[in-house]
Design a protein around this nucleic acid. Structure first.
Lengths: 118, 118
DNA sequence: TCACCATTTCAACTTATTTTGAAACAACAT
DNA sequence: ATGTTGTTTCAAAATAAGTTGAAATGGTGA
């Protein structure tokens, strides 16, 4: 049997915050964690991050995005990634004649702004 | 043959920014994109995000992290995720007697602060 | 109508990430 | 030394994400 089970300074700091329970209470719930980590997930691919950065500069149709990020990638690949950004709510697209113009949502702009700080 | 190949307002805006070339120039290089997206990748898992949030509240040893995020997960699983956060440079660990106390790095704190805005 | 262009969808495939359980390591107490 | 606790490592299995090429959709102009 031991008196001290964890390092004393840590235990003391921890108690001041209401102990394990106190810290637990400050953390988001399951839903919230999933939602937020999904945004990170969407930006966790270099190509998608690049697409976001381009769209923040300027709303663009898919074919221009392609020209900018890499003229050699396949259309289906590009579409796949754009779709992830759209489903996550980071961008939205609007049809203009033959083209679909994508631009960042408010969330998308926030996220990219944030990316610049890392 | 057509005169207009892309929506006029977009083309005009785009020209003002130096066209495709101009936008391209503003985007980060491959290395930079990879580095940044990796940070997002690390935070793209709800468990890891939760661990980060807990550590920002209070530096903790692994066993306390476990108590907080989910007492039922296996040690190896927890270790795997902690390791990803460490390798990405979001947290650092220091041995104190029997325990290893983890705490967020400067980058880790920044990243979490940012997470709160999404 | 037809051919054409931009974009998306689909299913098969490849690759990357996560989970598991057992074993190893490290520090400490007896 | 031995046993105990905290933590990591490893390889195998399970799951998820990304890529590919072909086919489909939907708008446009002849």
């Amino acid at each position: 049997m031991m008196a001290i089970e964890i390092p004393e300074p840590i235990r003391a700091q921890c108690e001041k915050k209401g102990g394990i329970k106190g810290i637990k209470k400050k953390l988001p719930g399951k839903r919230d964690l999933e939602k937020r980590s999904q945004v990170f997930q969407a930006l966790s691919d270099p190509l998608r991050l690049n697409i976001m950065l381009a769209l923040v500069e300027q709303p663009l149709c898919v074919c221009m995005v392609k020209d900018i990020v890499n003229p050699k990638i396949s259309d289906s690949k590009l579409s796949y990634h754009i779709n992830i950004l759209k489903d996550t709510g980071l961008i939205k697209g609007e049809r203009k004649a033959s083209w679909i113009i994508y631009e960042p949502t408010r969330l998308g702009k926030e996220a990219v702004k944030v990316a610049g700080k890392l």
